[in-house]
């Protein structure tokens, strides 16, 4: 290989690497730096090195701990739920039936709508007094539900809204994964006497580990950094029951003008996400 050729691949990678560094790593490093400094928007406007002071303040703040609890609970439910539902839908959409393409189109339609529009539309539909859903509930004899305005129902409702987009989106990837499994492999399993369930658990799922891992990890990252739905619908309420960490971090930085604590909080989210993703990778590593 000629000397110049050795560098060619790196040359092609360079634009992507530059953008990655510029838009991912520089912000992370500057966030890290910010979290060790005093609040630039304070009275004096002076930025001073304060060590771990911002983290200590977070540790003393019950709102932070409540936000952490809500974020963990939310992720503990939403990620497995979305991946399981997406996998089930992908298996359904993978059937060879007449008209299956219509089913696939309908299934994937919510993906085409932005999360902001979806949030607002569901917010209107779920309104207690004037919402479509409550109108329907009442028409069939049920009581009106507060949904996003109840401490008990707000988080499950948020999980539902987020999954309305998330599930079909991840189905898209899982369907592609399913379609890449050679038909002969499944046929061989059936010839060997495996039932449909056995073929699914013993053949399909192991061959899908890589795709499932990708989907689970991506979904986890998306949901740990979820911002728009609480921002648009609940503002973290009622009584902080939907106060996800990303929203709380934004609120601290841009509403309360406490950039140091905000940066510290984002770093906590980053660290938390990395730990969870590392565990997911370890568990879902392909065994062959």
């Amino acid at each position: 290989m000629a000397r110049s050729e050795r560098w060619t691949p790196y040359l092609f990678l360079l634009p992507a690497l530059v953008l990655l560094v510029m838009w991912r790593y520089v912000p992370i490093v500057s966030g890290l730096r910010e979290s060790f400094y005093s609040n630039g928007l304070s009275l004096t406007g002076a930025k001073e090195y304060v060590g771990l002071e911002n983290f200590r303040r977070l540790g003393d703040d019950p709102v932070f701990w409540q936000s952490l609890r809500v974020t963990l609970l939310f992720n503990l439910i939403v990620n497995p739920l979305q991946v399981a539902l997406a996998l089930a839908l992908a298996v359904l959409a993978n059937q060879r039936l007449r008209g299956i393409s219509v089913f696939r189109t309908v299934l994937l339609l919510p993906v085409a709508i932005s999360i902001n529009i979806t949030s607002l539309a569901w917010g209107l539909a779920l309104d207690t007094n004037y919402g479509l859903v409550n109108g329907l509930l009442e028409a069939v004899g049920f009581e009106r539900q507060p949904f996003l305005r109840s401490v008990d129902q707000a988080l499950p409702t948020l999980i539902g809204i987020v999954s309305w987009i998330g599930v079909p989106f991840w189905t898209l990837f899982l369907l592609a994964g399913l379609q890449s499994i050679p038909h002969e492999v499944l046929e061989a399993a059936r010839l060997d006497g495996a039932t449909r369930a056995q073929a699914f658990w013993q053949v399909t799922v192991p061959l899908m580990r890589r795709t499932i891992a990708f989907v689970l990890v991506s979904d986890t990252v998306v949901n740990f950094t979820l911002f728009a739905p609480p921002y648009l619908l609940t503002r973290g309420g009622p009584q902080e029951s939907t106060n996800l960490m990303m929203y709380e971090a934004w609120q601290r930085g841009f509403v309360y003008g406490d950039l140091g604590a905000s940066a510290a909080m984002v770093l906590v989210i980053l660290a938390l996400t990395m730990v969870v993703v590392a565990v997911q990778f370890a568990v879902l590593r392909p065994q062959h």
Binding site: S150, G237, Q251, G257
Partner: peptide, 30 residues
């Protein structure tokens, strides 16, 4: 800004049926 935003959340909670004293004390702490 902090005063307004935190009180606004407390008022919203009171509208939704939260205990008045609890909501206002929580807002005062925050």
């Amino acid at each position: 800004l902090e005063y307004e935003e935190i009180l606004s959340d407390a008022f919203e909670d009171i509208r939704n049926g939260a205990d008045v004293q609890e909501a206002l004390s929580g807002a005062a702490d925050r």
